[in-house]
């Protein structure tokens, strides 16, 4: 934000961010798309293995639960959110509850709100690409684009676009490969569904190791456990999410004072 105000002071007001991006593209790179793709490819490589392997896992998991490989692929292309897609598979196996699905999806993906806030300024002036930059946002894509050191001659919008697109494709390819593999080899053994539990345990543990204090982690665990005791397996999620929000709101002052629940 500070950068923005500085820019406004130094630049003539007639030139908008949009125009200056175009001017730079014309004067400094004859192939803005090719240059951006060349810079985006190596930047996206660290994401590739993770996405392909987790994608394969999701594909196999979904087909092992009796779904045709179309399901995981369709979810990969439309939802495009790793952990939620695992949860979606289990939603499809539970009784129909659209309100639960919607609110769980929003709560699980709520972290995107903060990625969006962080990228508000960076996505300015990217034109039609902005829609895709927002649609293709993910934990990993955010990590790469937010911290990327983009060379001066590379167009920022196209760089973001290709990193986001490549990550999206890695995921789609992994999920589809897993779905096809899972539908060809029928896995008879029970217990493959534990892979989702293991995944959330790992994500939770990574989060845990980053914090000095674990109050909010306890709030999540306890709210869910208590609600599960009171309500049925199919109806405890909405009360859980309400309870978490109530706790976090009511305990905001002491929690902020003690701090340490992140970084």
């Amino acid at each position: 934000m500070r950068e923005e105000t500085v820019k406004k002071r130094t630049e003539p007001s007639a030139i908008k961010a949009d125009d200056s991006a175009k001017v730079r593209t014309l004067s400094e790179g004859l192939h803005p798309r090719r240059d951006a793709l060349r810079a985006a490819l190596p930047a996206s490589f660290p994401v590739m293995t993770g996405y392909v392997f987790l994608g394969i896992t999701l594909g196999i998991y979904a087909t092992s639960q009796g779904f045709s490989p179309w399901y995981p692929t369709l979810m990969a292309l439309t939802i495009y959110g790793g952990s939620l897609e695992f949860v979606t598979v289990s939603m499809l196996l539970a009784p129909f509850a659209p309100l639960v699905s919607l609110s769980m999806a929003f709560m699980i993906q709520a972290r995107h709100l903060f990625y969006g806030l962080a990228m508000l300024d960076k996505f300015k002036g990217t034109g039609w690409k902005k829609f895709f930059l927002i649609f293709w946002m993910s934990d990993e894509t955010f990590a790469v684009t937010f911290s990327a050191d983009i060379p001066d001659k590379v167009d920022r919008g196209w760089f973001y676009f290709f990193v986001s697109l490549l990550d999206y494709l890695y995921w789609a390819v992994g999920v589809t490969a897993g779905g096809l593999a899972g539908s060809l080899i029928t896995i008879k053994a029970q217990g493959l569904d534990f892979v989702m539990t293991a995944m959330f345990v790992v994500i939770f543990l990574d989060q845990w190791l980053k914090e000095k204090r674990h109050y909010t982690a306890y709030i999540g665990l306890l709210s869910a456990a208590v609600c599960r005791l009171v309500f049925s397996a199919d109806s405890f999620m909405i009360p859980t999410m309400v309870l978490i929000l109530v706790f976090l709101t009511a305990l905001r002052k002491p929690l902020e004072k003690k701090g340490g629940f992140i970084e």
Binding site: V87, M107, T197, F204, A217, I219, G220, S223, A224
Partner: peptide, 9 residues
């Protein structure tokens, strides 16, 4: 942290 704790449960 709260959400991932919830998801483990």
């Amino acid at each position: 942290s709260a959400i991932f704790g919830m998801l483990v449960i």
